[in-house]
Design a protein around this nucleic acid. Sequence first.
DNA 1: AGCACA
Length: 453
Amino acid sequence: MSSAGAGQQQFRYTQTPSKVLHLRNLPWECAEEELVELCKPFGKIVNTKCNVGANRNQAFVEFADLNQAISMVSYYASSSEPAQVRGKTVYIQYSNRQEIVNNKSSGDVVGNVLLVTIEGVEAGDVSIDVIHLVFSAFGFVHKIATFEKAAGFQALIQFSDSGTASEARNALDGRSIPRYLLPEHVTSCLLRISFSAHTDLNIKFQSHRSRDYTNPYLPVNPSAIDGTLQPTLGPDGKKKEPESNVLLASIENMQYAVTVDVLHTVFSAFGTVQKIAIFEKNGGMQALIQYPDVATAAIAKDSLEGHCIYDGGYCKLHLSYSRHTDLNVKAHSDKSRDYTVQDAGILAVPQAPGVPTVGTGWQGSSQMFAGPQAPATSSQIPGWDPSSHSYVSAPVTYPGQTSAPSVPPYPGAGAIPTVAAASPTASQLISQYGMQPTGQHSSGTGAAQPPYY
DNA sequence: AGCACA
């Protein structure tokens, strides 16, 4: 209910007080800490939002109590000394909003790896050497991976620590790469920088799109030299796809929902499945399945390739090697699973049926990459939860500890539906678990999750 | 020097 019928005409002296203060004319380098230093004498700060506005020199500060915000505004309204940050006068007024919507999702969670979006350029315009040059000004750059996405040309840049990464981000976010480093036809080249959830990029080759500066002896990827992407399946069959312990499965004719549990059941027939991630790709569904070693993955790949999870040609599997070696996935969600994390496993499922666990509705610009230099097929992984960082960095991969849960994902159901044998072993396993398409599973529990295809 | 965005 707005009391003023006059519309947006709000004058300085009649602004309604708010716990949220709007600060402008801040210095460019203004960090949240400096903001807090300025404001905390007046009360408890519960939230901030920095780098607001076209010039990124505005900010919002939210106090716990309205009176605290009022005290700050009135103090500086009558003070002879203006509010300052690093000697620069800061203008303070009540925000026209009553609270800061917490926008600190994923991209603002600091880390040592930056996600850089380079706006207004083609991928070929900015070489990896230029990127390296620009970011090396802030410290040793360990690794760089570049890729193209809907958002544009992007790069993951790994520093030693989050402090260095923060400095680089604070200095370069919203800035442009100097003209003289760019081709002449490039008119603008704005950098948008956020933090990646990654802590260590997985660079397999030195190429025009990825570098590992800590390992100069890393082999040069021959197929990456000419700029062509690695195909997921070699059309002539001669493409030597590098083997991997991670399989990329695309699922064709998906008449039934294929869940993480279903995939786990199928792929566990060949060995311990460590991690699974499901994502949408071009309207179809794909999944990454991680085994502890290449040999197991190879067996699974050969055995399952072209086979269907369900009878009647449903959910046909096409397998290739991923370029990932260690998936960066949330330990337990409807789209991903990390079976190497025991305590977050199936036993600890807190959510009641029908209650959505995590809002995976938005993925935003900070998409997850299990490894850099992802091929085009996996360079659009939308389904992974950006908040997975909390689990990923935990080095819990003891060699013998990576075990799949011995509990069948489905208790023995009487009716064994049409389950086709992808391989004899898989067939036995599936039958013994009484697996049924989860798309139909929802008929039992009224409020179950809808199928997502 | 004048209000963010999933």
